[in-house]
Design a protein around this nucleic acid. Structure first.
Length: 214
DNA sequence: CGGAAGATCCACT
DNA sequence: GTGGATCTTCCGA
């Protein structure tokens, strides 16, 4: 049997084919995976614990609602496996993985991660001290981006190679996954209730509000 | 061209 | 729980 060290296990990039599926399937499958960021010589790693799917033209909460392809929405239309990074509220960044094909405009928002490697560096980037509060480092899409130094410079980057990639990590069992409505999209009518938010059950690094039944 | 709202976060009450 | 920061994008006039 091949010997595998704990340090290298699970760090193989997921292939682009992984993303070329429906967004809700990818969102569910990304839980437990590793998000790896290379910054110079430093490597930062988060375990993905919360995601949301956005379903394109038919989803009122999607930037591609009603087939919009102008402005930032144009950047949704890429082959699966590329990054879509945008600025929200004029100050925070959100990282998405494009799913499906170039024509779909579907994505998965990475909402929260648990620090695995380089937590001290992440805290520094976030302006935090050594305080204990779980979720303060990368529990929320804006926090996650700030912890990993992700900005719109990475918009359009491939997610299967440095400086930013998603890796095999530790896939999780269905029983450990909870689903519920997406956060911050109350304007989206019926779509606001679609259960497209996924998280690891009982996980302390999941962002607020907590999912019911956790 | 102006106004409004947003896939958020933080400080403060 | 409430309000402010800050800027891109959209929509109506």
């Amino acid at each position: 049997m091949a010997r595998r060290t704990v340090r290298s296990a699970g760090f193989e990039p997921l292939p682009l084919a992984f993303y070329r599926r429906p967004a809700e399937e990818v969102a569910r499958d990304l839980l437990g995976r590793y998000l790896v960021r290379r910054l110079g010589r430093q490597r930062l790693v988060l375990r993905v614990v919360e995601t949301e799917a956005y379903l394109g033209a038919g989803d009122r909460a999607s930037h591609a609602w009603r087939g919009r392809r102008t402005g930032r929405a144009a950047r949704l239309f890429r082959p699966g496996g590329h990054a879509y990074v945008y600025l929200i509220y004029g100050m925070h960044h959100c990282l998405n993985a494009v799913t499906g094909s170039e024509e779909d405009g579907t994505v998965v928002l990475l909402r929260a991660g648990e620090p695995l490697v380089g937590e001290a560096a992440m805290r520094r980037r976030r302006g935090l001290d050594e305080g204990p509060r779980p979720g303060a480092v990368a529990g929320g899409p804006g926090r996650l981006c700030q912890a990993l130094g992700i900005t719109t410079e990475l918009d359009g980057a491939r997610l299967d190679e440095p400086p930013l990639w998603l890796a095999a990590g530790e896939p999780v069992a269905s029983a450990d996954v909870v689903a519920g409505p997406r956060v911050g999209i109350t304007y989206a009518g019926a779509a606001a209730r679609w259960p497209l938010r996924f998280a690891l059950r009982h996980h302390p690094h999941v962002s607020r509000p907590r999912l019911r039944a956790q």
